[in-house]
């Protein structure tokens, strides 16, 4: 079956993340409609209630909002807020881990900065 969903976390979290990704990447623009929960359900072959839970998670965070009788829409400023959150997570997940590993290998902050510049080029 579709392996887009992995076993390590609840599916609704993964659905919410997928929508976030699409908003950050710009494939879901602000003030546009997101697919319905039933569409998500058939797309990923998941239970519609689970898809709804993922969407509602984003509604609770103000990323999506509901237009009565029409469906779910991306809120204004949603992308900006998601990017901010992501930067925070980026620091925790990547930078902190990188510095830990660098310390283990005896890489100095200067050398690390060099490496980043080289990687970016």
């Amino acid at each position: 079956m579709t392996s887009i969903i992995d076993d390590s976390r609840p599916i609704f979290v993964q659905i919410a993340q997928r929508i976030e990704e699409d908003i950050i990447a710009g494939s879901l623009l602000e003030e546009t409609q997101v697919p319905s929960t039933n569409q998500f359900a058939s797309l990923y072959q998941i239970n519609p209630a689970t898809a709804a839970k993922g969407v509602n998670l984003l509604v609770d965070q103000g990323i999506l909002y509901k237009k009565r009788g029409i469906g779910m829409f991306v809120a204004e400023g949603a992308r900006q807020r998601l990017v901010e959150n992501r930067k925070e997570q980026f620091y925790e997940q990547y930078v902190v881990a990188m510095i830990q590993e660098a310390n283990k290998l005896g890489i100095t902050a200067e050398q690390l900065a060099d490496m980043i510049r080289r990687g970016d080029a």
Binding site: M1, T37, N38, A41, S42, Q45, I46, N47, P48
Partner: peptide
């Protein structure tokens, strides 16, 4: 797979 798809679709409706 056809069964799962139809089940989900019909259940949603």
């Amino acid at each position: 797979s056809l069964f799962y798809n139809r089940l989900i679709e019909d259940y949603a409706e």
